[in-house]
Design a protein around this nucleic acid. Structure first.
Lengths: 237, 237
DNA sequence: TATTCATGGTACGTTATCGTACAGATCTCG
DNA sequence: CGAGATCTGTACGATAACGTACCATGAATA
């Protein structure tokens, strides 16, 4: 939360650069479900989520899509721009409403070329997202709905201050790409084992260690890579 | 094949830059199964496959892994280096033996900073691989073994000159992350419909259009993105 | 030519997840 | 407080893929 932002990418910057960058950012509130960037469109802006969460979605031509990365305060949406591409190849959609900082693509490119420290941190953030996409893809094919649910809840909890999350089974089913009933069954199982507790639209993690064991390794791998790539002085835990 | 290389990334360069780059490359023959880069290791070199095919593998801590990208003559292994990371976060393993050009990481970074055209093309190649990883991950979760087999065969055929590929069901099962028997069943189905024909270790595509219809959209999406990102003058088809 | 082994065909029961549907529970808002 | 909407629990059969195992066959080689 230091120096006006909660975004971990910006927090990884020295104070001078951070101030210079945030000076050009706009505070925005993102509504759940809003599409920030459509696949194929020119990239308008880069988002640094603070409390919002954005999905990077692989999009098919019939408009359907599958979430491949989940971008919260530990990352940013700048992947294609960091690869020198001015167009999006995927869709960015707001998954959890909340605050974010927005930087126009133009300004972004300019700041990146002016501040080597900014560029370095952005590359690290992009690598972190790349790794997440890679692991999530493998996870999709290899792990059970139960494991993936556990993983998803842990990841999300890292971005929330309280321990309770407002999530319906329906929403989780959408995120995991499974049936709603499958989520209900997996969630029941986790609850019976005392790892989570939930009621109508709210989920609380009651045994973090147990839930980590119930999840696949993917949670820890992605988290560890992110922390290594974007170290921070004042990071909790 | 122009100017001494068959690699599409290098072919996308103007002749002057291409000559300058290939001058520093070493011709190597890659053996099937060889591990070029292990996850966590410093990146030693970048490979530009000519006839070889390299898998980018998401690696778990028990040593197991899942193929997430498939790098042939249309791409290169430089993703992490393009993101400013000197360490690999995944494993690169030779999937199909063959020729490739190798450039040491050191030399690579140097050439990249000296030749803006080289850098631009490498970014495009990295974006192409990123997109492939993203789509493959979605594909993993969403599409049937039959569709994914069709996709895999089409992708591979694009890198081969003849129409016959030397592949066993066992190998394909490994690539797709399914049972060998599942491949046999899917392959039989494709053969019965006249889309492929195979015998003991050899597969031939007999109806490319039909096979494309039997595959998921992922094949075309990845191919189209690659072609857009790395346009070429003397590209066939 | 005879032998060996890699490869592919097939079969069995098992499992996870699917699609769909409906009823009961709980929240919200008028 | 009551009505309506939104969630969750549960059920059914269907399906795709699983693990495993065994046999047949084609190809290489001794």
């Amino acid at each position: 939360m230091a120096h006006g932002t909660n975004n971990r990418v910006l927090c990884a910057l020295d104070i001078t650069t951070r101030d210079e960058v945030t000076r050009h950012c706009e505070d925005v509130t993102l509504e759940a479900g809003a599409v920030l960037q459509r696949s194929g469109e020119a990239t308008h802006a880069v988002y640094f989520p603070e409390t919002a969460v954005i999905s990077a979605i692989a999009t098919y031509s019939d408009g359907s899509g599958i979430e491949m990365a989940n971008i919260g305060r530990e990352a940013s949406t700048a992947v294609n721009l960091m690869l020198g591409q001015s167009r999006h190849f995927h869709t960015d959609e707001v998954q959890i409403a909340g605050a974010a900082l927005r930087l126009s693509a133009e300004r972004f490119v300019q700041l990146k070329s002016e501040h080597e420290a900014f560029e370095r941190v952005l590359f690290a953030s992009a690598q972190s997202v790349f790794y997440q996409v890679m692991i999530s893809g493998a996870c999709n094919g290899a792990h059970s709905a139960r494991q993936r649910l556990a993983r998803w809840l842990l990841t999300m909890a890292d971005r929330i201050d309280g321990s309770e999350m407002r999530l319906t089974h329906d929403f989780l089913a959408e995120m995991l790409g499974v049936r709603r009933a499958t989520v209900t069954e997996a969630a029941q199982d986790l609850q019976e084992n005392g790892l989570i507790s939930y009621r109508r639209g709210r989920v609380r993690i009651t045994d973090r260690t147990g839930l980590t064991n119930a999840s696949c390794e993917c949670y820890n791998l992605v988290r560890a890579a992110n922390r290594e790539l974007l170290p921070e002085i004042d990071r909790d835990a």
